[in-house]
Amino acid sequence: MRNILLSFVLLFAAISSALAQKLTVESFKLASSDLTAQTQPRKDLNDRNCALIKVGIGLQGVQFEGSIMGNVENKTGEYWVYMPQGNRQLKVKHANYAPVMVTFADYGVEKLESNRTYELIVVTYPQYAITQNVTNQSLDSQQSTPQTHPTVSDNTISIPVKDGISIDMVRVEAGTFTMGATPEMKNPNDDEKPTHRVTLTNDYYMGKYEVTQALWKAVMGNNPSKFKGDNLPVENVSWYDCQEFISKLNRITGKTFRLPTEAEWEYAARGGNKSRGYQYSGSNNLSDVAWYKDNGGSKTHAVGTKQPNELGIYDMSGNVYEWCQDRYGAYSSSSQVNPIGANIEPSNRVIRGGSWDYYARICRSSDRGINVPDNRSRWADQGLRLVLSE
């Protein structure tokens, strides 16, 4: 009887969870510097240029209802919806989620204006439905079963390694973004130019935190860091050291971890398809999200002690620089799909994010660093963050 009751409870919870899935508006705003509505216009019935709403949602099969002119354009990572001026609402629908009616006035936009581009960010809640097979086990035996596989919660997974150490990862949905010195990036360097559109066609998981010394020790059996502490980011590691660490980690877990590409790193730092256009990763106020020169006290700090960015990822600005997989090279203005960096010699590698020892300008999400792959940095400011492909 107890087992039957447990089955009904779990089944009811699963049904409730499925019914709770819905679309939610994260933000709606005028994209004042985006001229797409003018450069790629669509006319309304009165021969006036429409307003353009760029809808970032990260789902396929999305439908829209309202006074829409022509077909909705499905771009990678976003939809383009053209509407005549004066409209005040747009309904967003998907077969697997409860729809949402977007009333523009709720977000400070009384009505749409001709020739203007707007940005609408819609997220799913819960973002990922988790199903569970209900077996004929007793409650006690279920609770005592050791966990040997990743646990999943919303858009995160936790992968056990050894000795009670796990790796928390955040899912980053595929999308398209402008990489480099976008307008919010103040005083950019020349190597951040020209800006260019980058499309990442596959979802991936990014480490929620920088790799800690506890994780490094569990895998490598040593701790090369200058500033010691289990929850501090590992530092004083070269690109080659990171590759050795990842190779051993993959043997332990049976997964395929790696360093992020530079494009994956910047896209995640900017908040992916939830980006709010901040200069730093998660805020325009660097002290909210980062340990850097002005507040770092000349040392690293425990990971995750500042605010996360839009995706729920911590310390992508400041604390320690993070190695990327890519060779360092100059940008091109051409659009790219899943770029993997330069194919040049010497094989200098990209580092990203700034550190506790650098001023605010270096902690911007578009700033680029460079180092030779065997350099461990005598300033104890280079670490890493992991990526896991789906």
Rank of each mutant, 00 (worst) to 15 (best):
D374P: 08
Y359T: 11
Q38R: 04
H301I: 13
I344Y: 15
P308G: 00
I344R: 03
A13D: 11
V100H: 02
S287H: 07
P41E: 15
R349H: 04
H301N: 04
L19W: 14
E235M: 01
P339L: 14
K228S: 00
V161R: 04
S332H: 05
K208A: 14
N343M: 11
G329F: 00
T182M: 06
S17N: 14
Q147C: 00
Q243K: 15
P41T: 01
A218S: 13
I340P: 10
G304T: 02
A51S: 04
I15W: 13
Q143F: 10
K274C: 01
F177H: 03
L6V: 08
N87R: 15
V92S: 06
Y292L: 00
D34G: 05
G304V: 08
I121F: 00
G312F: 11
T261K: 10
A129G: 01
R361P: 00
A268T: 15
T151V: 10
K217G: 04
Q40N: 12
D190S: 06
S283G: 02
E110I: 03
F8N: 03
G180M: 01
L120M: 14
W265T: 05
K306F: 08
R327H: 03
T76Q: 11
L45N: 12
L23N: 07
H301D: 12
Q213S: 04
T145I: 06
I313P: 05
D163E: 15
I167S: 02
L259N: 10
V55N: 01
N155Q: 11
A13Y: 15
N189L: 06
A330I: 02
Y125V: 07
Y280T: 05
N348T: 11
D374V: 06
Y82M: 05
N136Q: 14
N136E: 10
G180L: 08
E192W: 11
Q21I: 04
W265V: 09
Y314F: 14
T300D: 02
N115A: 09
V109Q: 00
T305M: 13
R88L: 05
Y359R: 09
P188L: 09
D288M: 01
F257H: 01
A174M: 14
I68W: 09
T135Q: 08
L386R: 04
V55P: 07
Q63L: 11
T148I: 12
V337S: 10
W239M: 06
R270W: 08
